[in-house]
């Protein structure tokens, strides 16, 4: 499927806006992107969305590449570059500008409060994202034990997450 130019621009603007709320990383805004791309616009199915997120997680590079993968699915290479730049430019400019400012002691106290206050929200949002993606994986009810198993393995062992993901793929091939 391919988006019209108008749809593309408005999707880019939406990504740029969302990026400014992605405290803790791109994963935090995935539920919102899922809502737009799958539930409202029907640009792709639940299972497609879940698979693409998993692809981005399993490949090298930062998780934010999920935005490029979704863009590729919606158009092609150029769309991928466009969605990626839409999402990354605003926050990158912000971070760069902040490196030009030197903070004093009041600044340090403010940073501590921001960190203390915002990190519980990040934790909750990452959990929400994991929960929504479990439901959207395409595996139906079987997704819940698989996700639970993967989470348990990741928490209890120091196994590289890539092996956990691939293992789940094998389980999917056998069980589903």
């Amino acid at each position: 499927m391919s988006l019209s130019v108008d749809e593309l621009w408005s999707f880019g603007a939406r990504l740029a806006l969302l990026s400014m709320f992605s405290i803790g990383g791109a994963n935090v805004v995935l539920p919102e992107i899922h809502r737009h791309v799958v539930m409202d616009q029907h640009w792709m199915s639940d299972a497609q969305f879940g698979s693409l997120v998993a692809l981005a997680q399993a490949s090298p590079g930062p998780n934010v590449l999920v935005i490029a993968v979704l863009g590729f699915q919606l158009g092609g290479m150029l769309t991928a570059a466009f969605t990626m730049l839409s999402f990354m430019t605003p926050t990158s400019v912000l971070t760069y500008l902040l490196t030009r400012i030197r903070g004093g002691e009041r600044h340090e106290r403010m940073v501590k409060i921001l960190k203390l206050g915002l990190s519980p929200l990040t934790a909750g949002l990452v959990l929400a994202n994991g929960w929504i993606l479990t439901g959207a994986s395409g595996a139906g009810h079987a997704a819940y034990p698989i996700a639970l198993g993967a989470a348990g393995l990741a928490l209890a062992t120091r196994l590289n997450p890539v092996w956990v993901i691939l293992g789940c793929g094998v389980v999917g091939a056998i069980v589903l």
Partner: peptide
């Protein structure tokens, strides 16, 4: 089917990240 499994696994990893973050609070 492999992708269904992989996406469930990736979602599980996301949950484990969330649990780690929550534990650090």
């Amino acid at each position: 089917q492999v992708f269904y499994g992989i996406s469930a696994g990736a979602a599980g990893l996301m949950i484990s990240t969330g649990v780690k973050l929550a534990r650090a609070q």
